[in-house]
Simulated scan of single mutants.
Amino acid sequence: MIAANQLTKKFGKKEVLKEMNFFIEKGETVGVVGPNGAGKSTLLRIIATIMKANNGTIQISGLDAKKDMKKIRQKIGYVPQEIALYHELTARENLRFFAKLAKCRSEQGWMKRCEEWKLAEHLDKKVKHLSGGNQRKLNILVALLHDPDILILDEPTVGIDITAKQEIVNDLRQLGNEGKTILYSSHDAQELESLCTSFLILKDGELLFYGSKQKVRQFGSISQSKNFAETLGAIVN
């Protein structure tokens, strides 16, 4: 589904990603974890074709990210850490605007999602008047308008309360159950444990580990006596 081969990215002389190799299967929910500066956001942006690598390749379903960017973007929904919405427009106006850009003519699909995600009653509120959690949900729904196979989320629950976080994690888990491939970056170890089936662990631009949740405990010198969230927390921070 997503294959990286010798993926390298530099900013000036600084090597931000260092010859990464991995293969993500269709339908996986992958936690992209590591301390600040590990290269997580850079990696996600390259996979989303927002940024180009200096060397190496990314392939999505056999398509090359450099040669087939337009086709790949049809398969991907990208959710940045920042709220990428028009705050003076209502939620409904935002969805209609971005749906038009995505050439999504029917409102039936996103209306159903709004009902499932408890946003339907807030559609006619301006984004600036929505709670932080509902802004985050709307940010994700915009990325889903064209029904992508892959959803890439860069810290999508930062700055919201625990209840809203849990609602979003539950909604994303349902998307995983529907067969979508999800890449999810977060510093919240409990979120990662609850949602993800496998993990990419980065540090200083290097891929230190890629594997299933069951194998995370075996990674590095983390004490085996810790529970999973503590183990992840030690890695992430």
Rank of each mutant, 00 (worst) to 15 (best):
L172K: 09
S212W: 00
N170H: 07
E82T: 06
E88L: 06
V142Y: 13
H129D: 15
S223D: 13
M1V: 12
V236D: 08
A164E: 15
I2C: 15
S221F: 03
P156S: 02
F22N: 05
E93S: 01
S131W: 09
L200T: 00
L119E: 10
F219T: 09
G179S: 03
A234T: 10
Q166E: 11
K26G: 14
F228Q: 12
L95V: 06
S223N: 10
L44D: 07
I150E: 13
E121P: 02
F209W: 05
L151V: 09
G109E: 15
I235N: 11
D188G: 01
T163A: 14
G34P: 06
N237M: 14
Y86K: 07
G34F: 00
L200W: 09
G220Q: 03
K137N: 07
I150T: 05
S131E: 08
K112W: 01
E93V: 00
L101F: 15
K203D: 00
E155G: 03
L232W: 12
A120T: 06
L89W: 09
K67Q: 02
L202N: 05
I46R: 11
Q135W: 04
E15F: 01
S225Y: 08
C196M: 07
K118S: 09
K118Q: 13
L232H: 08
V30W: 07
T157I: 08
K100S: 15
G39V: 03
E155T: 02
R113E: 13
N170P: 00
P148E: 01
I47Y: 11
I46Q: 13
E19A: 02
K215W: 01
E28F: 05
T57D: 13
D188Y: 12
A189Y: 15
A48P: 15
L123G: 14
N134Y: 13
F11V: 04
I168V: 04
E93W: 02
